[in-house]
Write a protein that binds this DNA or RNA. Sequence first.
DNA 1: GCGCGTGATGAAAACGTTCCCGCAAAATCA
DNA 2: TGATTTTGCGGGAACGTTTTCATCACGCGC
Lengths: 327, 327
Amino acid sequence: MAVTIREVASAAGVSVSTVSRAFTSPEQVQPATRQRILDAAAKLGYAPNPAARSLRGGGTGTLGLIVPDIANPFFPPIVKAVQARARRLGYTVLVADSDEREADELETIAAVSKRVDGLILWASTLTEDKLRELAAQMPLVVVNRQVEGVAEVRISLSAGIAQAAELLRAYGHRRCVFINASRAELRRGKSIQESFEALDLSLVELGPYEPRFETGVHAATLVAAHEATAVIAHNDLVALGVLHQMANLGVSVPGDVSVIGIDDTLLASVSTPSLTTIRIDPEEIATRAGDLLIETINGRHTDGPAPCVEIGSRLIPRASTGPAPVG
Amino acid sequence: MAVTIREVASAAGVSVSTVSRAFTSPEQVQPATRQRILDAAAKLGYAPNPAARSLRGGGTGTLGLIVPDIANPFFPPIVKAVQARARRLGYTVLVADSDEREADELETIAAVSKRVDGLILWASTLTEDKLRELAAQMPLVVVNRQVEGVAEVRISLSAGIAQAAELLRAYGHRRCVFINASRAELRRGKSIQESFEALDLSLVELGPYEPRFETGVHAATLVAAHEATAVIAHNDLVALGVLHQMANLGVSVPGDVSVIGIDDTLLASVSTPSLTTIRIDPEEIATRAGDLLIETINGRHTDGPAPCVEIGSRLIPRASTGPAPVG
DNA sequence: GCGCGTGATGAAAACGTTCCCGCAAAATCA
DNA sequence: TGATTTTGCGGGAACGTTTTCATCACGCGC
């Protein structure tokens, strides 16, 4: 059915070896011959069979990306960016969804791992040992996990948090609520608590809850009880729950209460009022994680300690934050 | 590196053929032998090499899904559902993003097509001839395109539109605006215009515009000029733009104007007010498209006309619709 | 008791590449 | 000019499976 290298070879009047070389290491074949081969290949519509190529040991040309939940609006832009980056570098991307469940994650990894040259694992629920074991078997990059000896991309919210604290402070807020649903990025480095205290802002932590819209709805009703005038939510979705309930309660945002989300998903830019949020740049994560994985595949990091790149964050001020109410 | 079928064979004291059979056609091998092989395979951690398998001609075990834009919140649930369905049937899914540009789409298809057994093409921008040509080369299912001789999943909004018209009519609305950005599903069957006229509702069509948030913002300012009390937007995103601008203009939703979206994305359920919208069930699309593709791969549809399944829609009433203002 | 179908297993070819080796001709050097 | 390196190309093995075909033992009916 499909046209093979052999047909191209006979069409160009050369051997299969030469055709193979014309594609994989062009400098080893005479320009004239090479051109003849390329023409023949183009005319026949030849494209190398990836299965045969990877069977021979050339790798699969595919990168695996496993995320906890594709339907979480945080991930689609990242998936998209990883795909774009990978394609530029000659790779395809196999995306899978671990459904946030450990059993599924192992199954997903098993299904994917034989088809890819390396894996990006986002916020894996696996144990450190398991991850190390996996890293020994294949190139691996973890995001939002810290495990000795495994290449890592780390997201740091501290810059964004600090900017949020500054903004709230400048607006005259003194008391703030944080709706927590356990973000790994926050457990490292300076805690959000410290960032706020440094600016003489008091912070009440609620939760941990599930990172859902309803969590925001629920938590919003607690804000008044804590006499807080600002809310930082676990993510944009939760922040939208807060916005929703504030509207129900007749509380004005940002008139009475300021609300800040995290992630800068689509949700933040299209809400009413539009949501001030802490942005983590998907392009940057995608580029760094993708490049790191490809470097690992190419054996760039076999010596020395496992590399670790840190991705920063920054505040995107929008309409959900404003001056604290007077009195 | 990886454990091969040969090692399993010698560990179990049988030939490679028997090991292969134990996995692919278990009934052909004696239960006792089979068990011995399975045990040996489990102990060694053997998993068949997909590259070798597909080289031999067994197919790749992978389905391709090409969507216009993964970052569009309509698609992630569909991707997720296709993946879930495919996995149940023993397939992996390769998702790619055509970026809504024709050149990219061809490139994407080229990159993906050699790695998959079949392709689901969503709202392709390719010509009918090109699609037919593609369908001749490999199993193909198109969604939201109609091309003679190619298996098709068709989305019908008419039921949802009819329900929307009924709801608005019951609420006493008489004049409605439709913000158009060209939906292929609407060009077929009864038009939205007809659905509304049948209920004695007048409908003004705006556009076509780009399906963006700003489109909704812009169109919202035109609603009053048309003396309309209800808006149906091209999709949820555009509807949210309308909601946003209505709030800016001090127009109450649903007090003064009712707003209806299309797609029932996450956006609709988390907006304030929550958005009445026309739902297209992602699970249903995913299941039907996936099954149709697998049937096509298995050669179930070689005779007779290309199959076509239609997916319905229905209204999800939420808080953005209400009685028309009196007077 | 003999031929024969039957069912389980083994041997080996084939899938399309890549890449190591070997060979000849061309290019370089003394 | 003769020896030696370089260059360009062809031959063929190998990658890990699946699958066809052959083999072999077994049990059946005659």
